[in-house]
Nucleic acid binder design. Structure first.
Length: 836
DNA sequence: ATAGGGTTAG
C-alpha cells in the first residue's frame, strides 16, 4: 500500500472516530499519524469546533500553519466559527486575510462565517459591508446577521437589518422569522403579533420549528389560548413543541393543563426528555405542590433522568420550595455528579429560604472551593441571605468580593446590595451604593423604601420619592405600594391621598398590590369609609386584600364587621391564609369574644389546613390572658411546638397586669429579661403590675432598677395631620407647657383607646389614628413640631407636573379637592386639571 | 463545510 492509500484510510478512520468515539479518541489517532494532509488537519480541527473546544481548534489551526500545510475553505470555516465563539476578533481578521489571499472571498459559506464573526465581535459595520457586497440577495447571509445580533442581544440593530433586508428586496424565509420571533419577547406582544401577521402575509409555510417559535412567543405573553390555537394549525408535533407548550402552561400557572398536555404527549408516542421534566417540575414548585412533584420525581427515576443536570436542578428547586425540610433537596444535590452554578444557586437559595442562612454562607464557600464561580444570580441570593439575617458583617464581606470581581456593574446585584444594607439598618451605606450605580430602576428605590418602612423610618421612605423623581425613574405598582405603606405608617392622610391620585392617574390603581395598600392606608388613617371604598374598587380581591380589609375593620374597633367580612371572604371563595387567622384571633381578643377566638384558632388547622405559627400562639396567649384564663395561657406557652420568644412572655405579663396576678407576672418578667434584658417595656409592665396591685414601692424599685441599668422608656410618639402639616407629639419631651398638657391627655386617650381595642402598634412606639385624635382633642391650633413634607417637586400630577393640593377624597377616577371641585382622570392618565 | 425551536437558579 502506498502513502497515499494509507493516508486516505487514516483520514476516513479519523472522521469515524470523531463521530463515534468522541474527539479525544480521534485526537489520539491524529497525534500518532505519521503523515497528515489538509483533510486530516481539517477533520480533527472541525471535530474540536463541533465539540465546542474552540481554544484547542485554534491551537490546531496554528500548528497546521506552522507545519506548512495550506488550509482549504473547510478548514477556514471551522476556524472562523471557533474565533466567533471565542470573540477572537484579531485571529478572525487574520483568517479573513487568508480567505481573500486564497481567492475564496466569494465563497458563500465563508462569507456567512465572517458576517457572524464580525457581528458577534461588535464590528457590525464590517459585517454589513460584507452583506451589502453581495447583490444577488443571499437570504442566508442576511439571516445569519440578524441571528448573530439577536444572540448578542442587540434587538434594535437586528430590527434595523431586517428592515434593510426588506428594502433590498430580499424575502425573509422561515429561518428569518424563527430568529425574529425569538426577539419578540423583548420587544413586546405588539411586535410579536406583527411578525406573526407578516409571516402569514409572506405566505410562509408553518413547519414545526416555526410553529414552536410562535407558540413560545404567545406563551411568554400569557396568551396560552393563541399558543394552543397555533400549535393545532398543523398536525406535526415533536418533543420541542410539546416541551414549549408544557413550559408555557407551567409559567402561566396552568398546572392542570400542563399535566394534561404531558399525558397527551405521551399518548401521541412522543417521549418526554430532560427539558420536558424540568418544565413540569417547575410548575410543581410554582404552585407548591409537593405531591405532584414527588410523582414526577418517581417518573424521572423510572426513565433514568435523575442524574441529569437540568432535571436535578429542577428537583432541588422543587423540594426546596415545596417541602418543609431541606433534606430531600440535599439528597438530590449529592446525586448530581458535577453540579453547575444553577445547582449551587438553587441549593443556596433554598437553605436561605428555610432560615439556614449560615449554611448558605458555608455552601457559597464550598462552591468556590469546588471551582465554580458565582454569577449575578448567586450573589443576589447570598445578599438576600445577608439581608434576611440583618447581618452587616456578612454584607460587608460579600460587598468586598463583589467590588473585587466588578459584579456590582450588574443592577440586580447592586439592588440586592442596597436591600441588604438598608435591611441591616445602614441607610447611609445603601444610599452610597445607589450613588455609585450607573443606572437605577424602580426595584432599587422600592427595596430601599420598603426596608426603611420595616425599620419604622417612614419619613425617609417618603423622601425616596423625591430622589426617584429627580433620577427620572418612574414609580411602578410595587414602589407605590411601598410609599403608600410609608404614608400609612405615618398615618398621613394628605400624602396618602396625593399618592392615591398618582395611582389613579398612572393606572396602577388597578393593581392589587396598590389597592391593597390603599385599603391599609385609609384603615391606618382611621377612615374606614375610604378604606371600604378602596376595597370595593378591587376587581378580584385576593387573600391579601381581604386580610387588609378585615384587619382594618378590627383595628378600628369594628369587630363584628370584621368577622362578617371574614364570612364574605369565604363566600367569595377566597381561601383564608395564616395572616387571616392572625387577624381574626386579634379581633376576637380585642373585642372580648374569647370563645369565638378559640373556635377560629382551632378551626385554622382542622378546617382550613393552615398550620399555626409562633405569632398565632402569641395571639392565642393574648386572647386567653385578656379573658383572665392565665393558667391556660401558661399551659399553651409550655406545650406549643415553638420555643417561646420574649414577645410571648411579654404578652402574658401584660395579661397578668390586667388581672393583677403578681406571682405569674414576676415569673414572666424574669423569663422575658433572660431573653431580652435591654427591653425597657418589661420593667414598665412589671412596675405597672405592682402599682395596680397596690405595691407601688415595688413599682418604684423596678423603675429605679431600669434606670440604673441605663435603660429609658421609648418615648411614645404620635402624629396628627392638620392642613397638610404633620404635628408630632412625644411623651418623652417636656419642652412646652401645651405639649405637656396634650401628652397628659394623650396618655389617658392611649389607655382608653387601647382598652377599646383601637389600633396600637407595639413595635412603632405609639401610633394612633390622626382623625380620632383630632376629634378627641378638638384641636386644630397646635404648634407645629415637625412638619414632614414631600415637597412640590414630587411630580404627583402627570399632567401639570405638580401636586393637586388639598385633596379631600378620591372616588373611582374622580379626585375631589377641598373646595369641592372635582377633577376627572382620563384613561390615558391625564386629568382635567389644566391651568391648575 | 453556511441560517432555525424547548429547560433549570435571584
Amino acid at each position: 500500500m502506498g502513502i497515499q492509500d494509507d493516508l486516505y484510510l487514516s483520514n476516513n478512520l479519523l472522521s469515524l472516530y470523531a463521530k463515534c468515539f468522541g474527539v479525544v479518541t480521534a485526537r489520539h489517532l491524529f497525534d500518532e499519524m505519521p503523515y497528515r494532509d489538509v483533510v486530516s488537519w481539517t477533520a480533527i480541527l472541525s471535530a474540536h469546533t463541533r465539540n465546542k473546544q474552540h481554544f484547542e481548534a485554534l491551537e490546531l489551526f496554528d500548528m497546521m500553519l506552522g507545519s506548512g500545510q495550506c488550509p482549504n475553505e473547510f478548514t477556514l470555516s471551522s476556524a472562523l466559527r471557533s474565533c466567533s465563539a471565542l470573540g477572537e476578533i484579531e485571529c478572525g481578521v487574520k483568517i479573513h486575510a487568508s480567505v481573500v489571499k486564497l481567492g475564496l472571498d466569494l465563497n458563500p459559506v465563508l462569507r456567512t462565517n465572517l458576517i457572524d464573526l464580525y457581528t458577534k465581535c461588535d464590528c457590525t459595520v464590517e459585517a454589513y459591508k460584507l452583506l451589502a457586497f453581495v447583490d444577488d440577495g443571499d437570504i442566508v447571509s442576511w439571516t445569519t446577521m440578524i441571528s448573530s445580533l439577536v444572540e448578542t442581544r442587540k434587538w434594535n440593530e437586528a430590527l434595523q437589518i431586517y428592515v434593510k433586508m426588506i428594502e433590498a428586496g430580499v424575502y425573509p424565509n422561515e429561518f428569518t422569522f424563527v430568529k425574529l420571533l425569538g426577539m419578540s419577547s423583548y420587544l413586546g406582544l405588539g411586535y410579536g403579533k406583527l411578525l406573526h401577521a407578516q409571516l402569514i402575509r409572506y405566505g410562509i409555510e408553518l413547519n414545526v420549528v416555526l410553529k414552536t417559535a410562535i407558540v413560545d412567543m404567545y406563551s411568554k405573553y400569557r396568551q396560552m389560548e393563541n399558543a394552543i390555537k397555533v400549535s393545532n394549525l398543523t398536525p406535526e408535533y415533536d418533543v420541542f413543541l410539546w416541551t414549549t407548550i408544557i413550559a408555557g402552561l407551567s409559567q402561566n400557572l396552568l398546572v392542570r393543563e400542563a399535566v394534561s398536555a404531558f399525558i397527551d404527549m405521551e399518548l401521541s408516542g412522543i417521549v418526554p426528555n430532560n427539558f420536558t421534566y424540568a418544565s413540569l417540575l417547575n410548575s410543581c414548585s410554582s404552585v407548591l405542590s409537593l405531591n405532584l412533584g414527588e410523582q414526577f420525581h418517581s417518573r424521572v427515576i423510572m426513565v433514568g433522568l435523575e442524574g441529569d443536570i437540568y432535571v436535578g436542578n429542577a428537583l432541588i428547586d422543587m423540594y426546596m420550595k415545596c417541602s418543609r425540610v431541606t433534606t430531600n433537596a440535599a439528597k438530590i444535590f449529592r446525586g448530581i455528579a458535577s453540579p453547575n452554578i444553577i445547582t449551587w444557586t438553587s441549593l443556596i437559595a433554598g437553605f436561605s429560604e428555610h432560615g439556614f442562612e449560615e449554611v448558605s454562607f458555608q455552601l457559597f464557600a464550598e462552591m468556590q472551593a469546588a471551582g465554580v464561580q458565582p454569577n449575578s444570580f448567586t450573589l443576589s441570593t447570598i445578599l438576600g441571605a445577608c439581608s434576611k439575617m440583618n447581618s452587616i458583617s456578612q454584607t460587608t464581606k460579600h460587598h468586598a468580593y463583589i467590588i473585587k470581581t466588578k459584579a456590582d456593574d450588574d443592577m440586580v446585584v447592586a439592588n440586592a446590595l442596597v436591600d441588604a444594607y438598608a435591611g441591616g439598618g445602614m441607610a447611609d451605606e445603601a444610599w452610597r451604593v445607589i450613588g455609585m450605580m450607573n443606572h437605577r430602576d424602580p426595584i432599587t428605590y422600592t427595596s430601599l423604601a420598603s426596608r426603611l418602612n420595616q425599620r419604622g423610618d417612614h419619613e425617609m421612605a417618603l423622601q425616596v420619592i423625591i430622589h426617584m423623581c429627580d433620577d427620572g425613574v418612574k414609580m411602578d405598582e410595587f414602589s407605590l405600594a411601598s410609599f403608600l405603606s410609608a404614608a400609612a405608617g405615618l398615618g398621613t392622610m394628605e400624602t396618602g391621598k396625593q399618592l392615591h391620585c398618582y395611582c389613579v392617574k398612572s393606572g396602577f390603581d388597578e393593581c392589587n398590590s396598590v389597592s391593597n395598600s390603599l385599603v391599609h392606608l385609609y384603615s391606618k388613617c382611621g377612615s374606614m369609609q375610604d378604606a371600604y371604598r378602596a376595597f370595593k374598587d378591587i376587581n378580584e380581591p385576593d387573600a391579601v386584600s381581604w386580610n387588609g380589609f378585615i384587619s382594618g375593620l378590627a383595628s378600628n374597633g369594628y369587630i363584628s364587621y370584621a368577622l362578617s367580612a371574614f364570612d364574605d371572604m369565604r363566600l367569595a371563595g377566597v381561601k383564608p391564609d395564616s395572616v387571616t387567622f392572625l387577624t381574626l384571633t386579634f379581633a376576637c381578643s380585642h373585642g372580648g369574644l374569647f370563645d369565638l377566638g378559640l373556635d377560629y384558632f382551632h378551626s385554622m388547622e382542622k378546617t382550613y389546613n393552615v398550620a399555626p405559627k409562633l405569632d398565632h400562639y402569641a395571639c392565642l396567649v393574648d386572647l386567653l390572658g385578656r379573658a383572665g384564663r392565665l393558667e391556660e395561657a401558661m399551659r399553651i406557652i409550655e406545650t406549643m411546638p415553638f420555643r417561646p420568644n420574649s414577645l410571648v412572655y411579654k404578652t402574658l405579663l401584660n395579661a397578668c397586669k390586667l388581672h393583677g396576678n403578681v406571682p405569674l407576672g414576676e415569673d414572666m418578667a424574669r423569663r422575658c429579661l433572660e431573653l431580652d434584658p435591654s427591653d425597657p417595656a418589661i420593667y414598665l409592665l412589671l412596675a405597672n403590675l405592682y402599682d395596680n396591685a397596690g405595691l407601688s414601692d415595688f413599682g418604684e424599685k423596678t423603675r429605679r432598677l431600669m434606670r440604673e441599668r441605663g435603660l429609658r422608656r421609648n418615648p411614645g410618639k404620635c402624629w396628627m395631620e392638620v392642613r397638610n402639616n404633620i404635628h408630632l407629639f412625644s411623651t418623652g419631651q417636656t419642652s412646652h407647657p401645651i405639649i405637656d398638657e396634650i401628652n397628659e391627655k394623650l396618655e389617658l386617650l392611649i389607655t382608653k383607646l387601647k382598652n377599646q381595642g383601637y389600633g396600637y402598634q407595639e413595635s412603632h412606639d405609639k401610633l394612633y389614628h390622626s382623625e380620632q385624635l383630632a376629634v378627641a382633642f378638638g384641636l386644630l391650633s397646635v404648634p407645629t413640631m415637625a412638619p414632614i413634607n414631600i415637597n412640590k417637586n414630587s411630580h404627583i400630577c402627570l399632567h401639570c407636573h405638580d401636586f393637586i393640593m388639598h385633596v379631600t377624597q378620591v372616588v373611582g377616577r374622580e379626585i375631589i379637592v377641598r373646595d369641592g371641585k372635582r377633577f376627572h382622570v382620563f384613561n390615558n392618565g391625564q386629568c382635567s386639571c389644566r391651568g391648575h
